[in-house]
Each structure stands twice: as structure tokens, then as C-alpha cells.
Write a protein that binds this DNA or RNA. Structure first.
Length: 416
DNA sequence: CGTCCACGTCTAC
DNA sequence: TAGACCTGGACGG
């Protein structure tokens, strides 16, 4: 569940599920977890949650005992404790009966109820972490969703920071300035504004003020009025109605919050709404490329001037068994760390790739094929797209794709 | 069976 | 700027 919206939804989930619930005893950690023990135990306490960017804070609050003079036993907490969580790639909270505690539940809080229930921090990959008596990480900036004004000011007032020398798509993952933005959000945000992902961040941001001019309804209305005059201004106005880049860093994540559900999580039944909301990330017809940190950037149109060049010499590699093969070389493994000695063989490239749905029947081999996210259970007709879109650099392809793709994003079900 | 990929940080050369 | 840290699903053979 991991970008800003999912973290916030997690906090709402905890507050809703644990409202009125009394917990008891020690906080329990799984054997395998490397995160710190949580030195808190209490006969009766409550749990509340809050989020900020990509962190969630749980507050454990001891409940006053009915027994008037009851003394707190040694080791029992009398004061509240905050625990700050980061979710890594797979963290989330679940509140279940004791026998339905999910696999990979690494921190657990047990209720005092008769059939006891358990609030679990579940994290399959264990990239997540928590800090007892923790605070929001000081190096992380203001929340893009709930500290919008501060977030904006923090970016605008630090544009001279060398951090903004990087491509905009990479800077959007810098939590010092964009606390809450993650890989799907950066793609969705830049896509909405048609900003090439690899333009210098400072270029994409300069000129934006710390005041959000789109905030005012009056302003928007004026623009709308104005738009009736000419067709050319219309385009621009439509864009302005949405707001500038910084505003979208706020509003786009909030759209996900308002979708409800659990946001990004392919395993979820209610994942289909989220998937339908995506316009670019992992969508058929969109292009993708690895950024300088090895993260996949989804976009359409021009990649921008700072796109990783990478060796494009790979062409030589065209070899292949059956006829045409598209270089297969361009799979780019990236991060394939283990056993790198052996992995050295193939040069792997990193070229722009278009996410093209394959036909069920043919096409078996090559073609860098991004895998699709397992769909909840949507079954729709697949749309035909010319394969091999590779090398279709900055053409104006996207408009058509952009308007149609909605109808067909599906998994490549390779029926055999 | 093996390879590749995934919503993110961290820290070591 | 690479690895490291992890598990597991989708595919390919």
C-alpha cells in the first residue's frame, strides 16, 4: 500500500476499525523482523492514527482504570507512546480476529475483547520499518496532501537547491520536497500536464509561486469565461483549471484518497477502481523507461532532454533465433544484483519501450514486455495496437492513445 | 524450474 | 550510483 494516499487510507482504516476498541498487554513483534522492539505494555489502551506524506503514526494511549486507586504495575505504561511507520513496498494494517492474522504480520496489538482481535502491521517484503517513540522523519518535507501550503513554500523557496538539477520525474520522488509522491503518482501527475518526465526540474517548476493562484474559484471562473473566446486559449485554460505542477502534486493524490478502497494493491478485490483511475502508470499504450535510479517511469510523448541515454549501441545485438526479434537486449535488468559476476553477460539496454498488449495467439517472444498488474477480475476486450512501438520517440502519438486507452487495459492473458 | 518485476528507502564504495 | 534488503506473482522453457 505504499504512496501517500495509501498511507493516509491506512490511518483512516485504523481510526475506523479501532474506534472504541481497548487493547491490552504488550506489543508483539514477529521473530523475523529487524525493526526495534516496542517497549510498551498496558492493561488497557487505545490506538489512534495519523499520516503525513509517506509515514503513519500510531498513538497508543493508556486508558484510565476504573479502579480508583489502582497503581500502575511496574513496566506498565502510564503515558502515551507514538510509533512512526514507513511502509516500504508492501506495508499495510489489518484488523482481524486472532486466527485470521495475515502472514507477514510483523507487529501486533491485541484487543482486550473476549474473542480477541488483532491490529497487525503486515509487510510481506519487510522493507517497511517503525520507530517506537518516533517522530516524523525530520528530513522529509511537508505532506503533499495535508500540508499543501507548507509543501508549496518548501519547494518554491528551495529551487536553487542542487536537488532540482535532476529531471523532474526523479525529483518528484525526493521526499525532502515531495513527501508522499511515489512511482505511480509521478507518472499520473506529469501525464496530466503533459510534462516530459526528463526535463530539468527547475525548468518545470520555475515561475510557480508559493501562493496557489488556482485556489480561488473566482480565478477559475474567469478563465473559463475567457476560454469561450478562442479555441487556442481553451487548451491552455483547461490546463490552468487543473492547476500547476505543484497543485497537482496535491490534488492527484487526494483523488486517490477519495476513491476510497485501498488504493494500489493488486491483490485487493477493490483494486479495480484504482486501476480504472490510472491514466498512465502501467497503462497499455504508454511508454516506459528506467530513470537514473532504476525506477520505471511511465509516460507518453517526448521523454525530455535528460532521459537516460544509455548505450543505444545495442542494436548489434539484434541477433535472434527466429526472424525479427526486437532486441531482447533491451530488457535492462538493473538491480539484478545477486550473482552479478555471471549476470554480466548480456548487456541489457534501457530503451524506451511501449507497453503494447500482445495478441493472445502469436507473439511469443521478445519485445520487452512489461508485465501487467494482475487485474482484480476485469475482463475486457483487448485493443489492437501495432506492436513494436519502440523507437517511436517523440512523435505525436499520444493523443490518440490517450483518448482511447481507457477502454482496454487488461492483462495480457495469454490464453494459449 | 528460472527470470523479471513490483507502491521504497538506506548505506557503503 | 550501484547494491542491499525481501517475498511472491506472472511468465517462459
Amino acid at each position: 500500500m505504499p504512496e501517500g494516499p495509501e498511507l493516509h487510507l491506512a490511518s483512516l482504516y485504523v481510526n475506523k476499525m479501532c474506534d472504541g476498541v481497548v487493547f491490552t498487554g504488550p506489543v508483539r513483534k514477529s521473530e523475523v523482523s529487524k525493526s526495534p522492539d516496542v517497549p510498551f505494555t498496558c492493561e488497557a489502551y487505545r490506538i489512534t492514527a495519523a499520516s503525513r506524506g509517506k509515514e503513519v503514526k500510531l498513538t497508543l494511549t493508556p486508558v484510565k482504570s476504573d479502579a480508583p486507586k489502582q497503581r500502575v504495575k511496574a513496566g506498565q505504561a502510564a503515558l502515551p507512546m507514538d510509533i512512526v511507520f514507513r511502509f516500504g513496498m508492501s506495508g499495510y494494517f489489518r484488523f482481524t480476529s486472532e486466527d485470521e492474522v495475515p502472514k507477514h504480520a510483523h507487529l501486533r496489538f491485541h484487543s482486550k475483547e473476549k474473542p480477541c482481535r488483532v491490529l497487525s502491521f503486515v509487510d510481506t517484503r519487510r522493507f517497511g520499518s517503525w520507530q517506537p517513540n518516533g517522530t516524523w522523519q525530520p528530513v522529509r518535507g511537508p505532506c503533499i496532501m495535508f500540508d499543501y501550503k507548507s509543501f508549496r513554500e518548501n519547494v518554491v523557496s528551495h529551487l536553487s537547491d542542487r536537488a532540482f538539477d535532476r529531471p523532474i520525474c526523479e525529483v518528484l520522488l525526493n521526499q525532502k520536497y515531495f513527501n508522499g509522491i511515489g512511482n505511480y503518482l509521478r507518472a499520473e501527475i506529469l501525464y496530466r500536464l503533459n510534462i516530459p518526465p526528463f526535463v530539468p526540474a527547475r525548468t518545470a517548476l520555475e515561475g510557480l509561486g508559493s501562493e496557489d493562484v488556482y485556489e480561488s474559484d473566482k480565478h477559475v471562473k474567469q478563465e473559463i469565461e475567457h476560454s469561450k473566446t478562442s479555441d487556442t486559449t481553451k487548451r491552455k485554460v483547461v490546463k490552468e483549471e487543473m492547476g500547476d505542477l505543484l497543485r497537482l502534486c496535491h490534488t492527484v493524490p487526494l483523488e486517490v484518497v477519495h476513491l476510497g478502497g485501498k488504493g494500489y494493491d493488486p491483490e485487493k478485490a477493490d483494486y479495480s477502481d484504482f486501476k480504472a483511475w490510472l491514466k498512465c502508470y502501467y497503462v497499455d499504450g504508454m511508454k516506459s523507461i528506467r530513470d537514473h535510479n532504476g525506477r520505471t517511469m511511465w509516460f507518453t510523448g517526448d521523454p525530455g532532454p535528460m532521459a537516460p541515454k544509455d548505450s543505444k549501441s545495442k542494436k548489434a545485438k539484434k541477433r535472434t533465433k527466429t526472424d525479427d526479434d526486437h532486441d531482447y537486449t533491451n530488457k535492462k535488468k538493473l538491480t539484478r544484483s545477486r550473482s552479478e559476476g555471471t549476470a554480466k553477460k548480456k548487456e541489457v539496454k534501457k530503451e524506451i519501450v511501449t507497453n503494447t498488449p500482445k495478441k493472445d495467439k502469436v507473439v511469443c517472444s521478445k519485445e520487452a514486455r512489461p508485465k501487467r498488474i494482475q487485474p482484480a477480475k476485469v475482463n475486457r476486450p483487448r485493443r489492437e495496437i501495432s506492436s513494436t512501438a519502440r523507437s517511436r520517440k517523440s512523435s505525436s502519438v499520444e493523443s490518440t492513445e490517450g483518448s482511447q486507452r481507457r477502454s482496454s487495459r487488461v492483462t495480457r492473458q495469454s490464453s494459449k
